[in-house]
Design a protein around this nucleic acid. Structure first.
Lengths: 97, 97
DNA sequence: ACCATATTTCCACTATCATCGAACTATTTT
DNA sequence: AAAATAGTTCGATGATAGTGGAAATATGGT
């Protein structure tokens, strides 16, 4: 992961609603959470929520999968881990110094 | 660290210039880097750079310390580590599941 | 006091983001 | 085929953010 890609991901996580959404998704693991469930739990109007979710999708932090009428939002741990990896490697103090 | 505070910090890191600045500061450790050095190395106009730096200062990721005419920018590892801690605890997959 | 250096603040401008109701699309049920 | 459910896209608006030149501030040197 390069700096620009990492910055884009951080930017999307850098909004309380989106960070909350991602946090909520992580809690429920690989099976994902329906958009509607997020809407109720987080109390965000549908259209606003939809924009936030697609922002997360656009940087690969979330994937969506349809099952009938229900759209599940699934956290993409791999992307998140790459972000964490970049931060650890490039932006953490080297305590051996 | 709570979600809102974390989101604010992530937001500021979520810009390539600012992430680059922070990364550069981390490289040089506790002694810090003069604003002017950042300006040359990163090739950002002074006023723009100044705005980016104060954004980082505003969320506690950077501190500034004057020595004569030179203002040193010093990364605040504690804040950064709190952000990392929040992300690890609240947004990482629990692999024991 | 004056000049040079280092950096910030002011100002104006453009661009992107956030929000949300209303209209629309997709899918299932009856 | 109509109605119900789930979610998205449209469209408009207000709010923030990004940018950088010019003017201002701070400090040190002569």
């Amino acid at each position: 992961m390069d700096l620009d890609t990492c910055a884009k991901a951080l930017k999307e996580l850098g909004h309380p609603s989106r960070l909350g959404i991602y946090k909520r998704l992580v809690r429920s693991g690989h099976q994902g959470v329906p958009v509607g469930a997020l809407q109720k739990e987080l109390d965000i109007p549908g259209s606003t929520l939809s924009h936030h979710i697609s922002a997360l999708v656009s940087v690969g932090l979330v994937k969506q999968k349809r099952d009938g009428r229900t759209l599940y939002c699934i956290p993409q741990f791999a992307t998140f881990n790459e972000v964490m990896g970049f931060l650890s490697e490039e932006c953490c103090a080297d305590e051996s110094t």
